[in-house]
Design a protein around this nucleic acid. Sequence first.
DNA 1: GTCTATATAGGGATAGAC
DNA 2: GTCTATCCCTATATAGAC
Lengths: 214, 214
Amino acid sequence: MTPGGEHTTRARILEVAEAFLGECGYHGTRLHLIAQRVGIQKASLFHYFPSKEGLYRAVLEESVGQTEETVRRVLEAQGTPFDKIRTLLESYVDMVAAHPARTKILLRQSLGDAPSEPPHTNDSQRLLDVIVQFIRDGQQAHAFEAIDPVALVLGIVGMVAFFFTSAPVLAPAWCGDPWSTGHAERVKHHVVEVVERCLTPTERPHAAARRATA
Amino acid sequence: MTPGGEHTTRARILEVAEAFLGECGYHGTRLHLIAQRVGIQKASLFHYFPSKEGLYRAVLEESVGQTEETVRRVLEAQGTPFDKIRTLLESYVDMVAAHPARTKILLRQSLGDAPSEPPHTNDSQRLLDVIVQFIRDGQQAHAFEAIDPVALVLGIVGMVAFFFTSAPVLAPAWCGDPWSTGHAERVKHHVVEVVERCLTPTERPHAAARRATA
DNA sequence: GTCTATATAGGGATAGAC
DNA sequence: GTCTATCCCTATATAGAC
């Protein structure tokens, strides 16, 4: 109950649970292993969280909130549209790289690895809308090429998630340690290159205008 | 044991198991539900497969084999490098769209949702190498821009998987029914556009040559 | 708040009849 | 080959002492 008191055991449980949920998924996560790594007994978990599902939701909420804050902060900063896009991509990759388990949890969650009910679709929806609207504005100002913004954003999110979760399994030689700064930099470089190629306007404005109305 | 006899119950079990494994993951899949949907008793499953893990591996093998065959067939056909890339992308998206559960299983599997040991890393590795080598050849012939081929392929695989699994959850309004032909066509169009922008050589060959050695 | 001990349930796997 | 019945283990969750 005391505000300061929550900063020890409860936070530690969330931290450990996040790691296990990312690595093993909801069904694969065993409470006794969480308790063991925290250094408490399994039954003590139920003093801090009402159930396994409650713990899961608490982990999710902390993750989504931070992502949203980061994206909004970048888009509200100063700079040209291309500057913002580049900064947004780099911040996003940094964030993914800094929280390995979170990305896996979000991927699993959208795969349906949930207790039962869909938790926070609205949050993700709003977040997506913010970025899509930013790209649309840039396109109407002829700063960006007229490519489908929703497809672009969704594709990039999937790409980045894949680079940090699945790719190390499929191509370990290329990825090396996926949580090293080297891998994050390589991903950043590639993603920025792809997006810039997709958003750089075609030389003649006629072509861009034609595509936009097609 | 009889070759013809395997085509009824065993095949049906594989089919149902694939659906459950995709939807619920390995840990979330319950054998009694598979048996129930097939219309047999749970114990009868163990007549066809040695264990839950054995059934899982059987499902995986069938999936990987078909993917590999499709990719090789496209790459061995006639046509320009750009023709092949476009056909490869379209065939790949078609295949993903035709087997919803398979994509989810592969995604889950690379997330670590496996019985314990890594099943078929070598197969995926070989498959990836085939495509990467094709792109490298095109780059050395100056038909393709000098972008990192491994990153490109991995990114596209992740993008497509995401479009068919996670995106419908994050952006249901944009995706509609993810297994309709409309969604598959939209994904195809976008992926082809992105890849062509990434592989189209820069006007001056000097730039491409510079990048290749950088 | 943390522990030990236990209740309760579910699911993978086996035995053996038919 | 398919069934019924059961073993056995594990995992969530609870009860109650300290």
